[in-house]
Design a protein around this nucleic acid. Structure first.
Lengths: 233, 233
DNA sequence: CTGATGCTATGGTCTGACCATACTGTGGTC
DNA sequence: GACCACAGTATGGTCAGACCATAGCATCAG
């Protein structure tokens, strides 16, 4: 289950074996999101392992956003395959930020990279921009920095969604979740949000007009305003 | 432990409580990579839960690349805090690709985005390029597409490392791991690798000369050659 | 036909046991 | 005193079996 390269010759643990078997079954049977996995007790018997080991494997799959477990009985109960990488990415970023093994700077830089790319892509695909417009209106109405950031996050995540790339959109959502604290600080530091709103409208206009270069430029200007100390790129 | 937003009012499971406690302890005590967590039995007693629940929490943390468990006794035994997000990202991508909830196109596009950014950054930071040069030499010596891709991966990952952003470098490694199969196919399809090598040398030169625009351009040209069907960006 | 009620399969949790591992300390030997 | 063999022990890994809460399902009474 772990990545391809691993130096130590460590013996494969039972739950790792379960993971491999489940992954193999997913690939061979062509299982998709929405399909059900066998019940824990059943899977344990099939693989000749204890239920504990199956449970640990399930926990891993759940952490990776691949399965969702529901108690009870019926079609929706049991371990169902899903596709929710967001929580996994968010947890990953938050924990590694907490461990100080990632600098905020690195996370913010990553966000800059994603956002510029997504804006250009969104301008090319001419998406539905109603969510973007609504988010801008929400920011206009916002009565507190927290509320402003809430709608700001919605705006930027919608922009990433509009790029049409689900991986990048998921990454963007996770980055925003991890950076919410810093975003609020930035808004408080700025005080006046009218400049940010001007930027947002410029980004929206560029997307509407299908001008990727202008969209990239607008996003760059926006982020330079929001994080002036990090603009040196 | 799960991300901030979660609609269902689902009762907090015990292992999630353990995760929260451990995370709190990491934050409050300022624990860093290399520090040890209490033993499973000890932690279970401290938190008033069973060892099973502690183990499930450990499995999650291990999946996220935050802890590493070692059996035996001594200073290196037990659950040690680490910082290895690579395997987590790789597993995440591979599983979601297997579930067909992510298209190869989306992953490859993400790679393009990262690579262009990293090349420009590397050109600005003037890193040690010996690894890059060695990777190019390795590709010259390669006797099979698999071997070529091996060194090609090393080259592109080294480029990402050279950007100085560990998050992006980790993401790049995971992307390459997930895409190894497609990379080999691309090399086989091309047949002749001399063009790719010309590109690699151009990228290396641009980084050496500290020219970020040329580096971006070189990477773009390289990827357009490697994935001609995806060049429409 | 409808509603109430017991049944049952599911995940969630706990307990207690045993194993393999790898360090630690002890004691004997040279 | 230095060194080595060996028992002790704390660690994670695994298993078996039990009990609980949940939630759909089947049955039966009206």
């Amino acid at each position: 289950m772990t990545g391809t390269g691993w130096q130590p010759v460590r013996k494969t643990r039972t739950f790792e074996d379960v993971l491999a078997q489940v992954e193999r079954r997913i690939a061979e049977d062509g299982l998709m999101a929405g399909d059900r996995l066998p019940a824990e007790r059943q899977l344990a018997e099939q693989l000749g392992v204890s239920r504990s080991s199956v449970r640990e494997a399930m926990r891993v799959l759940e952490t990776l956003g691949v399965v969702s477990s529901q108690v009870g009985r019926g079609p929706d109960a049991g371990a169902v395959l899903v596709s929710k990488p967001d929580a996994a990415l968010t947890d990953l970023l938050r924990l590694h930020l907490g461990l100080a093994s990632l600098e905020p700077r690195e996370v913010i830089d990553t966000r800059l990279m994603i956002e510029r790319w997504a804006a250009a892509r969104a301008a090319l695909t001419r998406p539905d921009v109603s969510v973007l417009a609504e988010a801008i209106a929400g920011m206009d109405r916002a009565a507190s920095p927290e509320e402003f950031v809430e709608h700001d996050t919605a705006f930027h995540c919608a922009l990433a969604e509009a790029s049409g790339n689900r991986l990048i959109a998921a990454f963007m959502r996770s980055l925003r979740d991890s950076l919410r604290r810093y975003a609020v600080e930035a808004v408080v530091r700025l005080g006046d949000t009218s400049g940010l709103q001007t930027d947002h409208r410029r980004i929206l206009r560029a997307v509407l007009e299908g001008d990727p270069d202008e969209a990239t430029e607008a996003v760059t200007a926006h982020l330079a305003r929001a994080y002036p100390d990090l603009c040196g790129e």
